[in-house]
Design a protein around this nucleic acid. Sequence first.
DNA 1: GATGAATGAGTATTCATTCAT
DNA 2: CATGAATGAATACTCATTCAT
Lengths: 204, 204, 204, 204
Amino acid sequence: MSPRTSKQFDRIRQEKKELIMETALELFAENGYHATSISQIAKKAGISKGLTYNYFESKKEILDKLITHGFDSIFESFDLNHDSVLTEEEFIHFIRENFRLLRENLKHWKLFFSLLLQPSVSDNFSKDYAEKGAPMFQMLFSFLKSQGSIDPEGDLMVLSAMLEGAFLYLIVAPEVFPMKIMEEKVINSISRLISTENNSTSKL
Amino acid sequence: MSPRTSKQFDRIRQEKKELIMETALELFAENGYHATSISQIAKKAGISKGLTYNYFESKKEILDKLITHGFDSIFESFDLNHDSVLTEEEFIHFIRENFRLLRENLKHWKLFFSLLLQPSVSDNFSKDYAEKGAPMFQMLFSFLKSQGSIDPEGDLMVLSAMLEGAFLYLIVAPEVFPMKIMEEKVINSISRLISTENNSTSKL
Amino acid sequence: MSPRTSKQFDRIRQEKKELIMETALELFAENGYHATSISQIAKKAGISKGLTYNYFESKKEILDKLITHGFDSIFESFDLNHDSVLTEEEFIHFIRENFRLLRENLKHWKLFFSLLLQPSVSDNFSKDYAEKGAPMFQMLFSFLKSQGSIDPEGDLMVLSAMLEGAFLYLIVAPEVFPMKIMEEKVINSISRLISTENNSTSKL
Amino acid sequence: MSPRTSKQFDRIRQEKKELIMETALELFAENGYHATSISQIAKKAGISKGLTYNYFESKKEILDKLITHGFDSIFESFDLNHDSVLTEEEFIHFIRENFRLLRENLKHWKLFFSLLLQPSVSDNFSKDYAEKGAPMFQMLFSFLKSQGSIDPEGDLMVLSAMLEGAFLYLIVAPEVFPMKIMEEKVINSISRLISTENNSTSKL
DNA sequence: GATGAATGAGTATTCATTCAT
DNA sequence: CATGAATGAATACTCATTCAT
């Protein structure tokens, strides 16, 4: 007879919010933000349309929260702020971490990639993305130099492209590009990719 | 005031059709298919909404025609069907051709990438894309083998990823990744990327 | 920790009810009935939405109760049912009472006026309003006759209009029409407004 | 077979626009802005909901256009900018004009009055209303002085109230307050209302 | 008595598509 | 061939009301 405690309410709110976000993520990633309607989200989540607005101000807010949440769970899970030079081992571990995070956040990544191609959807997604990605570039760059690259800028471009491309393939066609194999091949290629005195002259 | 010949009419039809498609491509690529309305297309093209339906059955058909047309203008411009083995020089030329085509069809590529991430939009876009891309994979593969790769499958994965990633960067952030530099770096990396007896053991 | 007596409960109920009504009056008067939501009322009153329905059947009932209550507190505070003829002094007192009541019930009056213009909102508000106002008309009429008006019907119209208009101005733009000054001016005009043998001929 | 001329389109647009505005005015005036839905307007006008948005950006814009249009057709129909002093005859004519305009724009006036009580609905309606009304106040004031009022400010208040009140009654209960009679009575009262040396001392 | 999660009907608005001219 | 008025279904969002606790 007594009303629910605020703790109970908090739990309900938390659970529902997550349910909505997960459902929305699934649909946004699969069909795109614009092609996904609140009705679809509500239906799939098994709730009423109205309830969605009990938890989120707007469809846009769901997207924004998904982005923030996605960034948090992906980028902030490893500390990229230490300046120390990575050993080969540490670097490999770092790359493997990236693959692991991709594996665990496939939907988020799919959403991110689609937003990259239409940054207008979420106003400063690109900026955030660039910011979040910057430390990674920095890390790749430092590592390349520490490994004796004679053209770290160029190597960085290629290495970044390779990683980004690998990610894209894994998201778009995971059945054609098995995650684990791709991971090994990429890791295996890194050393070869670095331009050193020895290999830089060997023009293709 | 002699009546226009049917030839003239045909030309007018053809021009209008192209005008609509170009305009639609621009808007689809920039804002996405769903976020672009027929009104916007018509307005930007300087024609009436109704006229659009004189040339296309539906908004979807514009997209489909764009895809087909895009594939045609991109993939079929070089003949990928010859089985002969490519020399290094021919191969480099082939890669450069790809960059050139990207440069000339940036909008198409942007559209393609966004469709890759939302294949539902155009029902069998992914299939077409895979089909059109297959000969290229084949060519990369043959080339890798001809160059003495001891793991052509693995090298193919990495090489594909690198190219796809380069393309994505060039589309999404051309100001950060200058086209020409990227092209040189990629080409320069190919030889290093191939796993041969000499370099395969060098574990990172 | 003895259980509250039913008397205490009643008092709590009464207080909550009044709290809700006051809050609703404020919002209805300021923003209109339709533009005011139950959520806003509850929030402003510091209670839950649900509780509102513990005291009122519906939003409409709050309005209706406000109207009834408003009529009660305004019209029934002075006894209009005595038939005796008013002296000048008594009449002036009566008019001053009206101004006083307006001052003390500005929100109610604002609400009343807006309902007058949209009687559909509360079904028979107009009827009630006319009924409640009737004795006042009667009183004005009797007074005008007792003062020697040779056209009491006409004078009544004008006097009513002047009073209603004064009230409207005081509600809508109290800063431009200071209450006390308006009151004096209106009272001062009443005698001049009555058409007597002496002034009726003076055509404007 | 040939397309409609732009003249034909213009006429259609003009007519439909007026139809929508008239219908909206009717409903806004009767039921209020918030209580009137676009569906109702469309239904009553015999058109589809969508068409409304072919002619107006939003529901709010319909209201704003109605206000502007209403002001235009009411206030600007007589020139209030001449500074010359009005004779009695001219003044009476001016007042009669006001009643005529009220008669011809009853719905507009009803809408205006309801907006007066909820200025939030249309952001700066009150300001416009005050501005448009200012010249009329000025005219009343000048006239009162020219007629020898010894308290023109006070008389102005009362006269304004009388007019505004008369208007309100005519809008709200025209069957109880017949327009023509009210008009005569008001006009007849004006001279008596002016406080002169002769009548100012006669305290009620 | 009190809470706020949940619902569903309703609202303003958009947009692909049709069609008379 | 060309126009844009017209439609109707769909969309994001609101809100009075219910109800389990």
